[in-house]
């Protein structure tokens, strides 16, 4: 056809240059980000897209297998599993994000200061953190949560404080690596005050590791918080929280109602996978020394 050439070319969605290069370099990470974005969207839009009220019991529709009406089936109370899984995303984020934020808020300054100052400050804080790490985190968290009371706020506090040493160690080791070069000495020679060395010269250079780690630790926080709920600590059924749902579903596994526990389980695996893949991708993307190569 001669006039075919005059037709405008279809508009294609073009990613910005660097994003595209990164997508090509690490497709897995890009998939992780996409999946994470989908979950975030799901959490935000949950009230709009849920077909049923996640806590509305329906005695007429108890333990129904997945069907057109109930995509993921219904549980022992006749609640729609699909709606509950979607709403559970909100809980997963609501616990993991503040927990990781708290861990960063506590861990990063500690890592910066101990790495920069060294000496006894470093010794004391790092030995304290080492002592914390000796205990298996689940046992420690369980002990604290059961002692302090199993509220959502307590779970967030425990997860955040328990995870702070991870960020402190990470930042401290990056600061030590930067100190071994001339970055700090050059900043001192230029006349930088200490706060500026910490916040302008050291902190931004540890950011990449921190962000990547944040995604990975968020995945840990999601899994641990669902573990708490699974063990009956913190959030209690019938609240639509994945861990609580999996616990409830476990009881029906043997009698064949697999959908109650399996669907929230899959959601949990996917979210934690998405966070891990995002973390790996971020570590790669945010390395300033690689920018010219990208």
């Amino acid at each position: 056809m001669s006039h075919a050439a005059t037709l405008p070319a279809p508009r294609r969605f073009v990613l910005p240059h660097r994003l595209r290069a990164w997508t090509r370099r690490s497709p897995l990470a890009a998939a992780g980000v996409l999946l994470l974005a989908a979950f975030a969207l799901l959490a935000v839009l949950a009230p709009l897209i849920m077909p049923y009220d996640p806590v509305a019991a329906d005695a007429a529709a108890v333990l129904q297998a997945p069907s057109q009406a109930h995509w993921f089936g219904t549980d022992a109370n006749g609640m729609d599993v699909f709606s509950r899984v979607i709403f559970g995303t909100l809980y997963a984020f609501a616990i993991a994000l503040p927990a990781v934020a708290l861990a960063i808020l506590v861990g990063v300054p500690v890592g910066l200061v101990t790495g920069y100052l060294g000496g006894w400050t470093d010794e004391v804080l790092m030995r304290f953190f080492d002592a914390l790490r000796v205990f298996p985190s689940i046992i420690l968290a369980l002990a604290v949560v059961s002692a302090a009371g199993a509220s959502v706020v307590n779970v967030v506090l425990v997860l955040g404080l328990l995870d702070a040493p991870v960020f402190a160690r990470l930042v401290r080791s990056e600061v030590l690596a930067l100190r071994s070069g001339s970055l700090v000495e050059c900043a001192v020679a230029t006349g930088n005050p200490v706060w500026r060395i910490l916040l302008v010269h050291l902190m931004p250079n540890t950011l990449q590791g921190t962000l990547a780690q944040a995604a990975v630790r968020a995945s840990w926080a999601v899994r641990l918080s669902t573990t708490f709920a699974f063990l009956g600590l913190g959030i209690q059924p019938p609240t639509p929280e994945w861990g609580a749902m999996i616990r409830q579903g476990a009881e029906y596994m043997v009698t064949g109602q697999w959908w109650i526990g399996v669907f929230p389980g899959i959601a949990l695996i996917l979210l934690s996978l998405a966070l891990n893949m995002t973390g790996d991708g971020l570590a790669d993307l945010l390395d300033p020394r690689r920018r010219s190569a990208g």
Partner: peptide, 26 residues
């Protein structure tokens, strides 16, 4: 003390052997 030296550092400066590690990459 370093606090007092800081103002003086306008009058003296240093160029390092390895500019890659001396300059803040960010």
């Amino acid at each position: 003390p370093e606090r007092r030296l800081r103002k003086l550092r306008a009058r003296m400066s240093m160029v390092f052997q390895d500019p890659w590690s001396a300059l803040n990459p960010r």
